[in-house]
Simulated assay, not measured.
Amino acid sequence: MISYSRSIIQRLQMDVMGVIIFLSGCSGSSVHGPNTVEAFIGEMFTVTCYYDTYYTNYEKYWCKGENWKNCMILIETTGSEEEIHKGRYSIKDNHTSHSFSINVYTPQKTDSGFFWCGINKYMWDKMTKIEINLSALPSTVKISATTFTTLPTTTATLTASVRYSPLTSHSSAFGRGQSQGSRLNLMYFLLLLSLKFPVIILVLAATAA
């Protein structure tokens, strides 16, 4: 009777252990990633999750949903290191670093919320929960610089010289022209005087006679 009771207790203990192991299959102990990811709408971001060596050749996936029971798989691997593309998502497994990365291209507001990195396992998947927070890109302020050009002093001096030199030239030419005109007038006066002087003498002589 005692031996029969012990066998029942042992079987119950084994069943309890089996249930514990069974339930622990959905825990995130074998796969882990960041708790939260901060990103911007329209700007690509990457999420990387790590797993135990045992699950190297298992299929990995990225799914959306607050509850692991009904999360929707968006993209998954084939168990190899081949990079998979689907819509705005890509996923790649790295067997050397025991990690897989998910790229989200041109993320939208709907890409915010709770997501899961998961390993496709018989009956119970290995999963870890990640919260994605997306915000609008900060506005950028463009400041245009105004360039001021200062002319050198020598350039200003040369410009002034060129500007005023024609006036000086005109003044000199005017002075020279005025001097030449005076000389011509004097010569003309002397010529007239030399022509009229004999006539005046003859007139005076006739009057005296």
Score class of each variant (00 low, 15 high):
C117W: 05
R183K: 09
F114R: 08
L23S: 11
A39R: 00
I73F: 06
L167K: 01
L191A: 09
Y105F: 04
I20P: 08
E66V: 09
K109R: 12
T157L: 15
G28Y: 02
I2Q: 04
M187T: 12
T48G: 04
S139A: 05
R176N: 08
F189L: 13
T149L: 11
T157H: 09
T106D: 02
T56E: 02
M17I: 02
I8W: 08
K129P: 01
N94G: 01
S30F: 06
I9R: 02
I84L: 10
F197G: 11
T128Y: 00
T207L: 13
Y188V: 10
G42C: 00
G118V: 01
V19K: 11
N103C: 11
S135Y: 14
L192R: 06
G18I: 05
K64F: 02
S29P: 01
F45S: 12
I143F: 02
F45W: 07
Q180R: 07
G177Y: 01
S171F: 04
K109H: 04
Y105N: 09
G65T: 04
V199D: 09
A173H: 05
I84V: 13
G113W: 02
N57P: 15
H98S: 05
R163Y: 05
Y188D: 13
G175E: 06
I200K: 12
S135V: 12
K126H: 09
V141F: 03
N35I: 12
Y51I: 05
T78C: 13
M17D: 15
N185H: 10
Q180N: 03
Q108V: 06
L204N: 10
S97R: 11
S172K: 07
S80W: 10
H98N: 06
M1E: 01
Y89I: 02
T36P: 04
Q13D: 15
T146R: 05
